[in-house]
Nucleic acid binder design. Structure first.
Lengths: 145, 145
DNA sequence: TGATATAGTTAGCAAGGCTAATTAAACGGT
DNA sequence: ACCGTTTAATTAGCCTTGCTAACTATATCA
């Protein structure tokens, strides 16, 4: 067993906690009837707005061919649509349809409600601590370019 | 836009923060040269100790056939081995090899070091807040049976 | 002993990750 | 104005990882 400094020990527990939390929240997603990568891409579209395929691939940390296929699936399910960008006719603009937006909001509500139910069992004080920690974590881990 | 209560707003931000944090940490994993599911299963073996295939599948929230194939891959890479359980000859005991254990520790160190580097930019006070929040989150989200 | 239950594997399918190669459009230097 | 280069997206083809259904082997128990 390697020796861990205090900060590394904190990092380790933070890491495990994040894994544990998302693993539980993810269970709610099956109710959407959408496969994980499709749900995640749709989420970026709904909350990030219309964007090109390359932008969407970058946001999801996958390669363009992978995203192209995911968008194919979303289109065939009527959840997103492609239009050509008039300024640059090589590029496409991908947008969520109304149906896609609605499905995504339902799923988001399920996840958030699930977490909120658990958080509601804590005291005001404990929830304040979590809020403080979120601010600190965002300070420590800046958005990637 | 739906109205969010304070608790749901906290849940939402907690959720996004966890996604963001793990997305960044995950980048470190490619250095291990191991596919994600294999790395994760190996991690359970190293930190959870030897166990049966069903136990390992349950721990990873996958079905036994999926885990059977992942263990096949780990075995063929010399990272884990199967032995028959002498008490119940239907069952197998899966254990990490020395090589598997070493590779896992290296990867874990990379992830933790990465997070620790970011956390080290915070004040003692901010890190204490994160530690407090981890305790509260564990209280709110109990381990699954 | 024989029916049933349990542990694991095999077979076959779908989703989602990749690289390499292709197509079409835009850009840029001469 | 042209031709070479770059860029956006897609196509083709591979691997990994998820699933269910069906099978084998062993254990359990009435």
């Amino acid at each position: 067993m390697p020796r861990l400094t205090k900060i590394e020990d904190l990092a380790d527990r933070l890491h495990s906690t994040a894994i544990h939390l998302l693993r539980q929240a993810r269970v709610q997603d099956s109710a959407s009837g959408l496969a994980p990568a499709r749900l995640s891409a749709l989420s970026v579209l709904v909350f990030g707005g219309n964007m090109s395929l390359n932008d969407l691939a970058r946001a999801e940390q996958v390669r363009p061919p992978t995203m192209s296929r995911i968008v194919d699936a979303l289109e065939s399910e009527g959840l997103a649509r492609r239009t050509v960008n008039a300024q640059d006719r090589r590029a496409v603009v991908i947008e969520a349809t109304e149906k896609g937006t609605a499905i995504l909001w339902q799923g988001r509500k399920r996840r958030v409600k699930f977490l909120a139910q658990h958080l509601s069992r804590l005291s005001e004080e404990e929830r304040r601590k979590i809020g403080d920690a979120i601010i600190a974590i965002h300070k420590a881990m800046p958005r990637q370019p």
